[in-house]
Simulated assay, not measured.
Amino acid sequence: MRKILILIAAILLQSACTSQTAIIKEEANVSASKEEAPVNIILMIGDGMGVPQISTAFYFEDRTSNFERFKSIGFHKSSSTSHWITDSAAGATAFSIGEKTYKRAIGVSADTVPKETILEKLQDKGYKTGLISLTSITHATPASFYAHVKDRDMHEEIAEQLVVSNVDFFAGGGKKYFNQRKDAKNLFKELANRQYNVDTLALSKSNASTKNAFILTEEGLPSKNRWSW
């Protein structure tokens, strides 16, 4: 046993420098990977942003496009299961559930079966989630990440599902789907009962200690050229 221990000690002494160097490199790599880990992940979806729109950015004026800062750029077939030309609902649902579906579908498969979205998966893992839209927050694109309905125009049903979705922060338009409903419900009160900071007038700041709901216009928000800066 003593000879074995001496032999092990000799091997360890011979490799001490190499091992120490390896440990230092490994610790440096771990440290670097921790530093490079993203704090937040933002998925930005531009309405109608196809290849022509993106390629235009590369040739606009005499400056470098921000798209050239991306290390990777990919392409995907945008057709839905029912049409060659997709719409916002099927397009966003493909992003949110990871599979194609029919035109006008929100968070459901081609057979209208509700599917777990990436937002819901992240919530299950303890991540905070948020949605911002320049249209109604019940519009097809944002809705596809938290709602599950068979048609994109079911705005009142979509708004109800948003109330119980536990999204930590959302902002956009669509007030009428919350307080001018056919069933006479006031979903703003329900949000307040769920401890949301609710703002429909753009008077408050986001409160990090609670969930926040900013619904600021009846439908979509004004386009940027109508704001005064």
Rank of each mutant, 00 (worst) to 15 (best):
S88N: 05
K77F: 05
E27C: 13
N40K: 12
D47M: 11
G91W: 02
G48F: 07
S79C: 11
A16V: 09
N40F: 15
K100P: 01
G48R: 06
G46P: 04
C17H: 10
V51G: 05
W84Y: 10
G50D: 04
A32Q: 15
A92G: 05
P38R: 12
S82D: 00
M49K: 04
E27S: 15
P38N: 09
H83K: 12
E27M: 14
N29P: 00
R63N: 08
I24C: 05
T101L: 01
N40D: 10
I97W: 07
M44L: 04
N66L: 07
T21C: 01
I41H: 03
H76N: 13
Y102Q: 12
G50S: 09
A22G: 01
F67P: 02
F75K: 14
V39L: 06
R63I: 11
V39K: 14
A94M: 04
E27V: 14
D47P: 07
I41Q: 00
T18N: 07
W84V: 13
S31V: 06
W84P: 08
E26Q: 09
A57M: 15
E61H: 13
T93Y: 03
A16T: 08
V39A: 06
G46F: 04
F70E: 07
Y102F: 14
T86F: 02
D62A: 06
N29F: 09
C17K: 12
S65G: 03
E36P: 00
Q20M: 11
T93P: 03
E26L: 11
C17R: 10
N29K: 15
I45V: 14
G50W: 08
E61N: 14
T56Q: 15
E26V: 09
E27I: 13
A89P: 09
M44Q: 00
Y102N: 08
I85D: 03
S55R: 15
L43Y: 11
G74C: 03
S15H: 13
T56S: 14
S55K: 15
L13Y: 14
V51S: 10
E27F: 14
K71Y: 03
F95S: 07
T81S: 11
F60T: 09
I41S: 02
A32I: 13
S78I: 07
T64P: 14
F70W: 05
H83Q: 15
L13Q: 11
E99H: 01
N66S: 05
I24S: 11
Q20S: 13
S15I: 09
K25W: 03
S72Q: 05
E27Q: 15
F95Q: 06
E61Y: 07
